[in-house]
Simulated assay, not measured.
Amino acid sequence: MRIALGIEYDGTDFSGWQRLSHRPSVQGALEKALSSVAAQPVEVTCAGRTDAGVHGRCQVVHFDTEVQRDPRGWVLGTCANLPTAVAVLWAMPVADAFHARFSARSRRYCYRILNRPVRAALDARYVTWERQPLDAERMHEAAQVLRGEHDFTAFRAIACQAAHARREVLAVSVRREDEQVSIEIEANAFLHHMVRNIVGSLLPIGRGEREPGWLAQLLAGRNREVAGPTAPASGLTFIGPRYEPHWGLPAAVTA
């Protein structure tokens, strides 16, 4: 039987999603908890790996098991064995053809910036602080050049192991709500540090240090060295993947 799960996590104290032998990871914590419920080893496959310090609103995973548990048992039993920073939102059986990574048609991220003179206290783990005023409309205008299929080498980490840098951005928006500026990006897939590097290049535009057309120049130039710095991990949340309706998954992850 193949089971799909929706996972929420605060990534602050983890060294990323991927299982590591010597550091805490979200995957390692989840597999340990699932193995306790199943009373046998369980390995999961996720929709998209996140870096150290990055959060997950609804990461989707799947695993195969012969153990019989109802969805409620998987959810409550696994949550009982997880650290407080990780929770299972839902569980459901899926077709054997379903794959958390390869069945996803797109993935979505949101980067949140607290834009005020004073640093955050309550939300410090989930936002990046920018004290200088940001023009969200200017940032939104600049970001529209990212839509479509492009070579995103300018926003790719040096350590990225992807076979190529071509990705298709389906939607991108920058908007302000009171003191918070949010950058949302949906793409078919992402490169290592791609969103954080894009944000790092949008910030000088929002501060008025660069013109909106600068982002188009960076994209066309394909030179990571002249683009903006990598924005901090704390502001980034993986909202989740999107799947076609025929898989029967919850509305939050269905296109």
Rank of each mutant, 00 (worst) to 15 (best):
I198H: 01
R242E: 12
Y109F: 12
W90E: 07
W90R: 05
Q18A: 15
L34N: 12
G6N: 10
V67A: 08
A171V: 00
V145D: 01
E141V: 09
T254Q: 12
A233M: 05
S106D: 09
V172G: 03
T12Q: 11
A231V: 08
A33N: 04
G56Q: 10
V61P: 01
T45R: 15
V145P: 00
Q217C: 06
A38P: 11
P24K: 06
A33G: 08
E244F: 01
H246N: 05
M92G: 13
I185W: 02
F152S: 03
T78I: 07
V44F: 08
H246D: 14
P83A: 10
S173T: 14
A38S: 11
W17D: 07
W90D: 07
M194Q: 14
R156I: 01
H22M: 00
G206I: 05
Y109E: 03
R175Y: 14
W129T: 10
E177A: 11
T78F: 06
I185T: 03
A97Y: 02
V54K: 07
P229C: 03
D10C: 10
V253R: 04
P41M: 11
L203P: 01
A189Q: 08
V26Q: 03
G28L: 09
S21K: 11
H150A: 09
G235A: 11
E31G: 09
A154I: 04
E225C: 00
V145S: 07
A157S: 15
R156V: 02
R49N: 12
A47T: 13
V88H: 01
V44N: 07
N115K: 02
A162K: 06
L76A: 13
W129N: 05
G248E: 09
R69F: 12
R224C: 05
C46T: 07
H55R: 13
A52D: 09
R166Q: 14
V172F: 01
A227N: 02
E149W: 00
L34S: 14
Q59W: 09
D13V: 00
T254N: 03
C46F: 02
G56V: 08
T153A: 13
L219H: 00
H164Q: 15
H62W: 04
G235F: 07
H164Y: 14
H140G: 13
W214H: 13
A189D: 10
Y109I: 01
P241D: 04
F190D: 01
T45P: 00
F63A: 03
L82S: 02
H140W: 11
L146C: 05
A120D: 04
S35C: 13
R147L: 10
Q68A: 14
R131K: 04
S36K: 15
A4W: 02
M1P: 09
H99I: 02
R147G: 02
A52S: 15
A4Q: 04
I7L: 13
L134R: 04
R147M: 14
E179T: 13
E43R: 14
V60Q: 01
A39Q: 15
Q180V: 15
A143H: 00
V118D: 12
L76W: 10
P245I: 09
R107S: 03
M139N: 08
R57W: 13
V172L: 07
S36L: 15
S201P: 03
V118Q: 05
A87R: 15
I183K: 00
A143G: 00
A142P: 04
R242G: 01
D10W: 03
I198D: 09
Q27E: 15
R167P: 02
L202N: 02
G248Q: 10
A171T: 00
I205T: 06
